[in-house]
Amino acid sequence: MTQIVELEGVTKDYGNSTRALSDVRLSLRKGNWTTVMGPSGSGKTTMLNIIGCLDSPTGGKVNIAGVDIAGLDQRGLTKFRRENIGWIFQQYHLVPYLTALENVMLSQFYSGIVDEPLAVEMLTKVGIGHRLQHYPAQLSGGEQQRVCIARALVNEPSLILADEPTGNLDQNNGKIVLDLLERLREEGHTIIIVTHNTEIAGLGDRTIELVDGKISLDRINERKHGEVI
């Protein structure tokens, strides 16, 4: 089975008044890069959080990597998350009192195996090999985001979820991050990236647009190799 994400009639309500997602049906292939677009408040983050098992839907069925999420309890969800999901945040969310290396190892720690050489390797891969002992406050935004990517990658997740990964970065650093993600896609990782930026809308294998919690556009892109921005 090559579908890694399957949403069926997924709805998310906040209280009685706010419907963030409304009857979303979506099926994503393994190894694909999917770009999620849409105006502010359209439900992009909500959808990503549900796919990443950080949030649960009010209605509908969610199946990630062949597992029906509804059947998992709190601990089961946590375990599923650490085995399958790698997060890249717009705010990076690095632990401020740990070094770049320790931030990556933190993720290993909570997955069960601390492997320092592998953590170093991941940081080297994202180009932070020379900044291992730096604290987040000593790193630029772009560097912090790359640490965040290394942390997301280190446990070999089946799904990489990025919510506005370039939102806080300048064009140059944004390009570095996107190039990195492109490389990961080439290595076979499945990536879902949420963005406001219309310039990167056309990147990846597929572009989805949300409006008012509904999918309003779903487009398969022609792959343009090596072409970013």
Binding site: T78, K79, R81, E83, V95, Y110
Partner: peptide, 15 residues
């Protein structure tokens, strides 16, 4: 935020 982050990378309530 740190607690949320730890949860997102797989720390359960016990930890």
């Amino acid at each position: 935020k740190e607690i949320g982050l730890l949860k997102s990378i797989g720390a359960d309530n016990r930890r």
